[in-house]
Every structure is written in structure tokens, then in C-alpha cells.
Computed example of a mutant assay.
Amino acid sequence: MKSGRHRVRAEELELTPMDSRHKQYHHVDIDPRIILDTYFGSQNNDLQEETMEYPLKQLHKAFTSGGVSGDTLIDITMGPTIFQLLSASEIFKEIIVLEHVETHHEELEKWLKKDPGSFDWSHLSKYVCDMEGKGEGWQEKEDKTRRAVKRVLKCDLTKANPSEPVVLPQVDCLYSGACLDVFSKHQDEYRSILKNMSSMLKVGGYLLLFGFLNMSYFKLGEHTLHILTYDEEFLNQALSDTGYIIQSLDLFSSKKKSDLLDYDHLVFVVARKEREI
């Protein structure tokens, strides 16, 4: 794969420690509404096409291709977001959301309960309705998603059972939205977290993974935060080592320049779990 900014070899990445200037976002006390307003709001968001619409298109494609299906999906996404669940609610009877940060857990519950002042996702709900072309209203789409989300659980991805102390049955599908990138301090930890997450997925089940290639930071308020830098070669090897067969790997080249974050490509992977590790 050819890419532009800060292209380095995989073996060089392996030796690169976490930048000590950049804290991990789950170790910084940031109002979850700052995260939502900065990256997911409807107003003047130049990144919407890439960081929101791109994964939504890929999820829709995965769910309508006929391969990814089942009864239960686990969602592990960076931030208190629900937009990635809108299409999943058409396929899965039960969605379980795992959230690492307590304040994010509370923000998700506000939306699920339709609390006044909860974050407005209507711009993306309308986008998904238009994409699916079912003539469904965006309010109906959101209510269907609320009904599908059965549980929101605290998690710790560094544990062998991320949902500890709750023990969940293995599920049919696992969606990971940039959490591996953000939580992993280095590539060995990425592999370890991926293994922990994968323990919740049935053999034969599907991992849907959204991430950023060759990214080095992102910003929230006054904070510049850590994100793991890795490339396509590393991602392929990490998935293979964790028992996956990649069904598809789609790359989206960055077209937007932003002071908030840097990356060369977005990546979306559909991978089938072939064996336990």
C-alpha cells in the first residue's frame, strides 16, 4: 500500500514507544459532549464524510452482502456513539455495548432513555435511512436501535474477559470502532487487546473493524492524545495471528486536512474467526 504522510516500515513501528507527550484519552477527564461535538456534530464538520459516512457505508455493505448475520452483536467503539448501531439494528435482535469510560456510559444511557439534552444524532440517522432506502423515518430508525440495545456494560479491554465481572456468551458479530487504535500503547498491546476482544466472538463469527492507518495523534479540547501508529502490513499479521481470515479489507485515502487529527487512510475490515487462540 502506498501512503503519504509519516510512512514508516512495520519493523520501525514495532520499536516506536508511545509518545510521552500524548496521554491516552481514557486517562484524561474530558466531558463526553466535547468528544461528540468535536467529531460527530452536524455543524460545520468537515470530517463527516470520512469519519462517519465512510464506516456507515461499509457497515451497510457488510450487513447487506449476506455474509454477516446472527442474533447478537457486541459493539466496542471509542466514545459514547450510537451511529454505528443504526444499520446493525436491522440485522441483530440484540446489541450489547461495551464502554470503557464511566461518563461515556452515562451519556449513552441518556440517548437510550430519550433524556432531554441527549446528543442529537438525527443527521446520521437520516443519512442511514436514505442509504437503506426503506422509506423509514429517522425517528423510527432511532427507536428500533434503542430497542435492539439490550445492555450497556462497563469494560476493560486489558482483561482476558473484557466485560468482567459479567460473563457473556460468545456472540455472532463483534464491531470495533477505533478502540484498538486508541487504547493500545504499543503493538504488542494491540495484539493482546484484539485477543481479549476475540474471546467474546464465536468461531465462525465476524469481526468488523474500523481504524486509522499511519495516524499519530488526535485532539480533544486542549489535549493532544495518543493513538497507535500502524500500517496495513501490521494489521493483516495481527488478525492472522489472532485466528482470523480476512474476507475484505477496504482502504479510504484521506482527502481532508484537519488540525484535529492526522491519518493516511481509513481502513474497514470484515474478518471471519476461524479458530480460538
Rank of each mutant, 00 (worst) to 15 (best):
E94T: 15
E94K: 14
I95N: 04
I95E: 06
I96S: 07
E99H: 10
E99C: 08
H100W: 04
V101F: 13
E102Q: 12
T103Y: 00
H104Q: 15
H105N: 05
H105W: 15
E106A: 08
E106Q: 11
E109V: 12
K110I: 10
W111H: 10
W111T: 14
L112N: 09
K113R: 14
D115G: 11
D120V: 10
W121C: 03
S122D: 13
L124G: 05
V128N: 06
E132A: 02
G135Y: 04
E136M: 09
W138D: 07
W138Q: 05
E140W: 03
E140T: 04
K141N: 11
E142G: 02
E142F: 07
K144Q: 14
R146P: 12
R147V: 02
V149H: 05
V149M: 04
R151E: 12
R151S: 07
V152I: 13
L153G: 04
C155S: 10
D156V: 01
L157H: 04
A160W: 00
A160C: 01
P162H: 00
S163M: 03
V166K: 05
L168F: 00
Q170K: 14
C173H: 05
Y175W: 13
A178E: 14
D181E: 13
D181A: 11
Q187N: 14
Q187L: 15
E189L: 10
Y190F: 15
S192F: 09
I193H: 08
L194M: 11
N196M: 01
S198M: 00
L201F: 00
V203E: 13
L208G: 02
L209V: 04
F210R: 04
G211S: 11
G211F: 04
N214E: 15
M215L: 06
Y217S: 07
